[in-house]
Amino acid sequence: MMVFDKLNVIIAGVGGQGNVLASQLIALAAVEAGYEVTVGETFGASQRGGSVMSHVRLNSKNSLGPLIPKGMADVIVGFEPMETLRILGVYGNPRTKVLVNTRPVYPIKVLAGEQVYPNLNTILQGIKEHVAIMVSINATDIALEVGKAVVANMVMVGALSGTGFVPIKQEHFLKVIKNHFGEKLLEMNEKAFFLGLNNVVQRIK
């Protein structure tokens, strides 16, 4: 696993996908891994179907502001394909590593027929062409196998662990997941984490 002086991670998606919790767990796991961490995010109104992103900044010393400047994302964890492309255009660079959930969440104007959602394969191919590496996963379908769409966030956290894009060990992720969830929900979320992790590990071996 690589060691970094600083690492800028963006978690992007749509309100209601559980990406705020995912970013919190990634941040807590980074603390377990010995990093100073700053997180910038918005919640509240943005949770209602809008574009949502969290900036998680790992650093050797805690002097960073909560927002990542343009073009300086090292890793983008995209919970939704179109949002991943949107964020990539602002914060990405040719060295950025991307993990993307392939399941689209259609904006209201697309559902209403006023706008068109770009072709999914075009989006994924396009992301791939503009970054160092892209790993895709249908986290939502995997989550539905576990039982609830909302655990797609843990599938993504597991997948992130599997990619090795962040200098955080599996045991650090598992520790914070265990601390966060009560007994009732832990099993389902751990299962989701490992399904995400194994799915990615098998494919990028």
């Binding site: 179907g49 809008g50 492309l85 949107r86 904006p107 959602y117 075009t122």
Partner: peptide, 10 residues
């Protein structure tokens, strides 16, 4: 990739 992408209303 696709010219532009739809905005996401709340």
């Amino acid at each position: 990739v696709c010219g532009s992408i739809p905005l996401r209303d709340r």
